[in-house]
Design a protein around this nucleic acid. Structure first.
Lengths: 168, 168
DNA sequence: CTTGGAATGTCAACAAGGCTGACATAAAAT
DNA sequence: ATTTTATGTCAGCCTTGTTGACATTCCAAG
């Protein structure tokens, strides 16, 4: 489409040209493929998909989280999550405990087998990210995280921030 | 929480801790959602999906590209791409011309209507990325692109580089 | 106590978009 | 002349998303 460069004469804003933005867009596309490639390979062998990975990841991250909370983080319908969750529970990777304070709620935990899968997946994914981080150095990593955070929807940034503080 | 880790020198490798890597992983997950959110909303109204967006994007990027080339870039099967391509051609967004040099090949072009859709989608996506880029500044953007490039699979990095030089 | 609403689960149906396998055709390459 | 390549197409399957309808359980307000 029309390259109506956003710089409009200002030399310091050359990184905002349509061309630079398009490179960023394509970088996101190709990088996300690499980002999910290793876990995907592991999951296929076990008969799971990316949806199972996401559920396992965030249950591991926030043990005892409720289904509703998980729905908000994952951004899918309860029916869709329920299907994934059901198989994980049937296969003994996730345990669902009825809440004590509010017995309507189900609190989700990984079993030992679930933690083993989570570890296998996250190790593979971390390895790739570690290699990338190491290759480019800490300053680039800071920039990477800053751009990603700025690109999130506000409600997702809320979840991200909550998880960040929990981790630190 | 000191999020930059204070590791501006490479001697301390604090930016490579599992915790930092996990933050990068979650940032990718949440940011990719934001990255695709705006085009997704536009596409739903028109009865298309993300697959159509990808096809339209790369045809626009490399007018006259062949089906085989597109398959390599998108990393899907020809059956899957064909289904998407067929609807785009039927709807008059993409034109498929038999090759002159090699008559087995189909060269793909966007029609005016196709370019209009591409423009609408990429404008929405660029707007979000421009806002993010502007917010964090050029140095962060460099780091962002470096990390993403380092995270790609090698063959995808090849495609990315080829598109980059074409754009520049 | 009854009723309303919230949280969750379940069943059914459907769509997008991946996949494989099989087969057809045309044209290039050998 | 035969093989390989590029593409298209049909059929069928899977994952993962969607909506709609309905049941259950339980908290909370009247």
């Amino acid at each position: 489409m029309a390259e109506t460069g956003g710089a409009s004469g200002n030399e310091t804003l050359l990184f905002l040209t349509d061309d630079q933005l398009r490179k960023g867009i394509e970088a996101m596309f190709f990088a996300y493929r690499g980002f999910t490639a290793d876990p995907d390979r592991i999951l296929i062998d076990k008969g799971y998909g990316r949806a199972h990975h996401r559920a396992v990841h965030f249950i591991n991250r926030s043990p005892g989280t409720t289904v509703n909370n998980l729905l908000a983080i994952l951004g899918v319908t309860k029916q869709s999550l329920n299907r994934v969750l059901r198989t994980l529970i049937e296969d003994g990777l996730v345990e669902s405990r009825i809440g004590t304070r509010d017995k309507r709620e189900r609190h989700l935990f990984l079993t030992d087998a679930g933690q083993a899968l989570e570890s296998e997946l996250s190790t593979a994914q971390r390895n790739r990210m570690r290699a990338a981080f190491r290759q480019v150095g800490p300053e680039a990593v800071v920039g990477f995280r800053q751009v990603l955070e700025a690109m999130m929807d506000t409600d997702m940034r809320r979840h991200y921030a909550r998880l960040r503080e929990a981790g630190e």
